[in-house]
């Protein structure tokens, strides 16, 4: 499944926990810091809809991806 570009970084920090928010179904789930790195090469995968996305990649870099 191709990695879907996102309009903006879709992660947030709340207290001790880092969360990703699936751009497809809006499911929130905890992630490790490495997945939220702007240059992470491994996409996160939504546990609910299995949609792959980069939680920490800024929108401009995501758009430059061929």
């Amino acid at each position: 499944m191709p990695v879907t570009p996102v309009a903006e970084p879709v992660h947030e920090k709340r207290g001790n926990c880092l969360w990703a928010i699936c751009p497809a179904c809006r499911t929130r789930f905890p992630i490790g810091a490495a997945l939220a790195e702007p240059h992470a090469t491994v996409p996160a995968i939504c546990p609910a809809c299995h949609h792959p996305f980069h939680p920490g990649r800024p929108a401009r870099e995501e758009r430059s991806t061929p």
Binding site: P30, A34, L35, V42, P43, I45, P47, P52
Partner: peptide
């Protein structure tokens, strides 16, 4: 060859984060 794994319900009783 790496991929996302988790989140997964851990021994702590909480969901462990998705990791690589």
């Amino acid at each position: 060859d790496l991929g996302a794994d988790g989140p997964f319900g851990e021994y702590t009783g909480y969901m462990g984060p998705q990791i690589i």
